[in-house]
């Protein structure tokens, strides 16, 4: 449920690191808590994001969740397919349900993130 090649933050985003570009999405736990995603509001390519600040919103029928950037950087790609098929976030949260790709300003910021094991322990406390 929590792939070991990813890093996680306590706001339930996951991060896949490929060089100085990271792909960001929300974890299985987050999509399950939220329920069926019906609307995803993402920023535009070229926008900058800051660690710990919101970069978008994701809504189910009943609730809204903010999306938090795990590190500073510039958005190089946005998963625009989600606007037509937001349910992809539930169906494939670590694959087709990714949200943005960010070119990192400071890759060292990723050191503060959790490993899959640490995240799973964190989630089991929250649940």
């Amino acid at each position: 449920m929590y792939p070991s090649d990813l890093k996680y933050d306590k706001e339930h985003e996951w991060v896949r690191v490929e060089g100085d570009v990271v792909t960001i999405g929300i974890s299985h736990f987050a999509q399950h808590q939220l329920g069926e995603v019906v609307y995803v509001d993402l920023p535009s390519e070229g926008d900058s994001v800051n660690a710990g600040e919101t970069f978008g919103e994701i809504e189910s029928v009943k609730s809204v969740s903010e999306l938090y950037a795990p590190a500073d950087g510039e958005i190089v790609k946005v998963n625009s397919a989600l606007s037509d098929a937001p349910e992809t976030v539930n169906e494939d949260p670590y694959g087709e349900g990714w949200m943005i790709q960010v070119k990192l300003a400071d890759p060292a910021q990723l050191d503060a993130l959790l490993s899959a094991e640490e995240y799973e322990a964190f989630v089991s406390e929250e649940a």
Partner: peptide
Amino acid sequence: PVQYEGIKAEH
């Protein structure tokens, strides 16, 4: 109960 499987599916 606010939902079981999911609001959309129930709807």
